[in-house]
Amino acid sequence: MDIQLILNELYEAGVLESHVQKLKPLTGGTSSEVVAVMDGTHPRYVIKQNDPAMIEVEAEFLHTYAQIEKLSRLVYVDSLHRYLVYTFKPGIAGQYRKTNKADLLLSLATEVIAHYKPLESERHYGYPDHPFMKWRDFLLYRTKESEEIIQDVLPQEDHRFVQALVAGMPPRNMKYLLHGDLGVHNFVFAENGTLTGIIDPDPVVGEPLYDLIYAFCSSPDSLTFDAILPAAERLGPELTREYELNKEVLQGLYFRIATCIRHHPEDLDQYAAAWTYWLNRAR
């Protein structure tokens, strides 16, 4: 959709004071187009265009968790879900300084994930355009995708171990709307390295620990049990019942190794070392 038409619509809806605005292109996802609406030299709003199903679920995520301060505030959603508008989160995006990961995870658990809300039982697990009846089926799908990428980077017995581990997960009937892409690349930091914002959700319906482990595995530093345990404990028994943390982390690390091979091969040695560490803990 032409951006000028969007600006005109936002002006007519009373979102913008004028339909003539200074814009600044921002880096979007694989399918989204993102621009900032400037207030002088400072970004004020973000306009994101994407597939309507993705816009609808991202708007739902921001609306559902409007009370979470680290998330942007939803300002406007197009009635046809062609685009949405949300407030710009000031700070340094994606510049993780590898400080204290345990503190970062604890902040995420306390200020974000602990505030997730359960969904009605009729909702399916997974992404809106690829739903699953069971959470385990979504994870098995991700496991198969990851195996095709990892191939002989890991021995076949490791692939079989992960497949058996995921297939043997007990049903927990927990459905929450998750960020889905809760990694350091989507974190906004202040100059002193403090986490101030989280951007670009790719919402998934699933279990809250998935987001915490995603964040934990999204950088190759401090991938130890001691770094994630305090945050996992902070989520409380209602969000972590029946979990075996070692096995859950091993699943998330398997998915991350596949992402590493595709996008960050320079980190593979560190992830390989972490894999050995967690595999020994999970067996």
Rank of each mutant, 00 (worst) to 15 (best):
L5A: 15
K22N: 11
K22M: 11
L23V: 06
K24V: 10
L26Q: 06
L26A: 02
G28I: 04
V37Y: 00
P43C: 07
R44N: 10
R44C: 09
V46F: 01
V46Q: 00
I47C: 02
K48H: 05
Q49F: 01
N50R: 03
I55R: 02
E56F: 08
A59G: 14
L62Q: 01
Y65C: 03
A66N: 12
V77E: 11
D78A: 05
S79K: 11
Y83E: 01
L84F: 11
K89T: 15
T99S: 10
A102R: 14
D103G: 01
L106M: 09
E111L: 10
K117Y: 06
P118E: 03
E120K: 15
E122A: 14
R123H: 15
P131G: 04
Y141L: 07
T143P: 00
K144F: 10
Q151V: 15
V162A: 12
L165M: 15
A167M: 11
G180R: 00
L182S: 00
L195W: 01
I198V: 14
I199Y: 01
D200A: 02
D200Q: 02
G206T: 02
Y210W: 10
Y210A: 05
Y214F: 14
L223A: 00
T224I: 08
A227N: 05
I228T: 04
R234S: 11
G236C: 05
R241Y: 14
E244T: 13
L245T: 04
N246L: 09
I257A: 03
I257V: 15
A258W: 07
T259K: 13
H263N: 12
Y271N: 04
A272E: 11
W275Q: 02
W275V: 08
W278M: 06
W278Y: 11
